[in-house]
Amino acid sequence: MAFFGKRILSFRNRKKDTPGGLWDSCPSCKEMLYLKEMKEAQGVCTHCSHHFSLPREDRIAMFADAGSFEEWDGDLTSVDTLKFTGTASYTDKLAENLLKTGYKDAISCGKTRVGGFDVGLGVMDFKFLGASMGAVVGEKVTRLIERSTEARMPVLLVCASGGARMYEGLFSLMQMAKTSGALARHAKAGLPYIPILTHPTTAGVMASFATLGDVIIAEPEALIGFAGPRVIKETTQQDLPDGFQRSEFLIKHGLLDMIVHRHDLKQRVVDLLNFWMPESSQRPVPVDGPMGIKQEDVVEAPTKNTPAKRRKS
């Protein structure tokens, strides 16, 4: 598989991601969206502020100071260790998802700079097998946390997940413990950890690193929970309350610290890091870099309109 260049694949993938061509309708407000404009608005509907899922490169670019992201462990690959016998082979599923996304597994991790602070950043990608956590996701998250602990860096994890990866059996469940153990050490070292919960974050990821933050931030209207709504409905035979398991429901029930509009996310993280981290650890923020994203584009986008005005009430 080595001959598949990552760049070629992500290019091909990006074309696939815009099925309607230049325009598409927003699933939330049904307004027609000029996709280029929506993409420039970091995957936020320009009419109703609906948050679309964001390709991982865009998510990284959104947080990383220009050109500062250095990927770690991008070559880790999942293995069909159980020789899973089922409807489809795990190996085929992995190959299919590699082709679909251009990545070897459901998370990209690395060191980056956010507002001048060195940060360990992980970004989960729901497009890859529902961002389920198997040994690769668990290992990459654990290495990210361990290296960040060693380098005295905060950790920022953009979460999205359908849960543990069934194809890896109990090994996948144990990644919950592994990652939580690494976070115990990171916390003991007095370092900040911020999980950012995006739509949807559930099950095994939710019951491990997604809920262990010093502060837990969520994007608006994200589905966040342990069990899926369908399972809960089937088990309890009860109607689910309005807005159940959405960010707005969970902040009311005391799980989340804040719901932050995507355009304000980076600034909010930087504000927190400014508060927590020693001033001496902050470096000057560069303006441009190989990511091709100008820093002011990322930071200034939200100030054009105040997000509160554009948000659905």
Partner: peptide, 10 residues
């Protein structure tokens, strides 16, 4: 728990 999980690393 650190050792749990099987993967390949190219």
């Amino acid at each position: 728990f650190r050792a749990m999980g099987v993967f390949a690393e190219t």
